[in-house]
Design a protein around this nucleic acid. Structure first.
Lengths: 339, 339
DNA sequence: TACTAATCTGTTATCGATAACAAGACTAAC
DNA sequence: GTTAGTCTTGTTATCGATAACAGATTAGTA
């Protein structure tokens, strides 16, 4: 009489029995331990093959305390930066033999703490938080106290774990490009201020203008969406002395361009527009968008590497590298109209 | 002498001890079992609070055989459909109290089987495969034999688990819109043939033209990328009798529009262009893109619901619903130029 | 030869929870 | 007052692996 083995997945002891060895030996073979005879190893592997055995990661995780899984928190909006960062994390994690557990959240303190909580409870070995924490920072820190954590947005005050792109130089590149073309000054459509990337772009833009001795016009606020860019564009397009606009994301830049076009202002003849990100569609805007490339996919990858360092070598000092962005000049920028 | 309790996360027995009850009682309280005295419950919850206890999901999964995690396989390319589907899955899973484990793959049989394998080994309760399986179907089926699985691309031959959008009517909507404007026929830039969505769009386009008694021109093949749309556009733009183009995705449509614009063909005065998907940027194309809306986020959500039904009620019959797409008319379509 | 060291394999305890069973206290019904 | 039934709690076995220890065999060396 069998013991309801009917449809159960084979366990290690089934393999052991089939190979005529102990479970421990099977474990050793599968973990590539050195001291196993070649013959035994072959017998075990044959049994594994025959039974279609797969090691149960849950059981492994329980006894080793390591799940080889990392958790990722992103915001629940489908924009380019989110998805390409997630993709980068995914790819890098896979290469390193880690699985990825992802959770989305809104911007609220409650949402973020819940998201992090969930992942911790799932037993992840480390965490990547790709969202501005702000007031949630303190509670999140408590929850993640025992777990290596990397944040990709600096607003959290967890700055020692930050991984990002050099926003300052991104903006300086763009601003100087426009000033270099002869524009008197550069207007700015910024991202939502709770994102540290947006905040530091705003900041750097101001400083770049000041440094060049130009007038600093008031900024307009967007929320990363093309709609918000469109609304800003409707305002800027009505102001005749606006000849150059730096938009904090390509997606908003599409909205700005649309609004300007509807108002009859030609790009780049009347107004120059520069975006940031270099999304796939930027080259296919009308006109093709001049922008500052920063690879979110790469940021995701680096976040993973940084995290794995912390996981596998917790004692060491970890410096956070910053990546240099590059300016991609297309057709949306030109010298200002001669007066 | 303590037993290296130094920095260990508290376990259930720690809570039990603190509350002066057995571990089983703690378990019962946390699982909302009915037969626990109010007083006891309060004492347990107080201890949980005090120690900052979180239930270990790994241990639960091991003993219950359920991880409350679902696995998602997507392709490793960052396009709109992938990311919004993933987002939909994410959100729906969270609402249902499930975690999401995501893996990306390439299109190869090996890549796909490995991806699925990984997830199975991670111990997911169910699988969503958002990639065309094709020849991988057989091996994947073997691997997922014991696990509920939903595919969102029909090319797999696992059709009984399919969840999707009615591609036929999407294309008919678009084609008839163009014919209704007076175009003699409609050209088509298709997606990669290994995607069943692309294949059925191609098919439906042909049949729609035949049914209307129109000439069926040869189709051009793209790969979902804006670049491929651009290349197709460079060809179509040189053919003076092309006045209406149905593009199998909005992202490719951006490329087509760019190419046509560069060749001096005005949209929609000279050529009408219709996309499919209604991505966020479609409304901000130049001109705003007429397209057929189909919500990938929604497809993701429905895939989850469908999967959870299978998980929680394996015996029942599960019919796969199909969603009706809607035509969104913007500015990229108009009657053909009068000759 | 004898004694140490290195290889190989097996046994037992353990990770942190839940399932299944058991037992005591109390209530209800005859 | 006994018996059965409900409510509440505890005890033990178990999920599937690995760690730690231990025993047996072989090899190496004084």
């Amino acid at each position: 009489m069998q013991k309801r083995q009917f449809n159960r997945a084979p366990a290690m002891r089934d393999v052991a029995q089939a190979a005529g060895v102990s479970a421990q030996t099977v474990s050793r073979v599968l973990s590539d331990h050195p001291n196993v005879q070649e013959v035994t190893k072959r017998r075990v592997l044959a049994a594994v093959e025959e039974l279609g055995y797969r090691r149960n990661n849950t059981a492994r995780a329980l006894v080793t305390g390591l799940s080889r899984t990392i958790g990722v928190v992103t915001l629940a909006t489908n924009n380019y930066s989110r998805s390409s960062l997630a993709l980068g994390v995914e790819l890098a994690a896979r290469e390193a033999g880690y699985a990825v557990n992802s959770v989305t959240s809104n911007l609220s303190t409650q949402g973020l703490t819940e998201a992090v909580s969930r992942l911790v409870q799932q037993g992840v070995d480390g965490l990547i938080i790709a969202a501005p924490l702000q007031e949630a920072a303190r509670r999140v820190r408590e929850i993640t106290a025992r777990i290596p954590t990397v944040t990709t947005d600096g607003s959290s005050g967890m700055s020692d774990e930050l991984v990002g792109v050099d926003q300052e130089s991104a903006v300086v590149l763009a601003t100087n490009h426009l000033l270099g073309l002869g524009h008197r000054t550069v207007w700015h459509v910024s991202g939502p201020p709770e994102w540290s990337d947006a905040a530091s772009r705003l900041d750097s833009w101001r400083r770049a203008l000041e440094k060049a001795g130009r007038e600093v016009p008031p900024e307009l606020h967007g929320d990363w969406s093309p709609e918000s860019g469109y609304r800003s564009g409707l305002i800027l397009g009505r102001m005749p002395d606006v000849t150059a606009i730096l938009v904090a994301s390509d997606e908003m830049a599409f909205g700005v361009i649309r609004a300007l076009t509807e108002l009859g202002r030609r790009i780049p003849e009347d107004v120059s527009v520069v975006g940031i990100d270099d999304i796939d569609l930027a080259a296919y805007a009308t006109p093709p968008l001049t922008t500052v490339r920063q690879s979110f996919e790469d940021t995701g990858r680096r976040a993973v590497f940084h995290l794995l360092e912390q996981i596998e070598n917790p004692e060491a000092e970890h410096t956070h590298q910053v990546v240099e962005p590059t300016l991609v000049i297309r057709k949306s920028t030109a010298p200002p109209p001669s007066v």
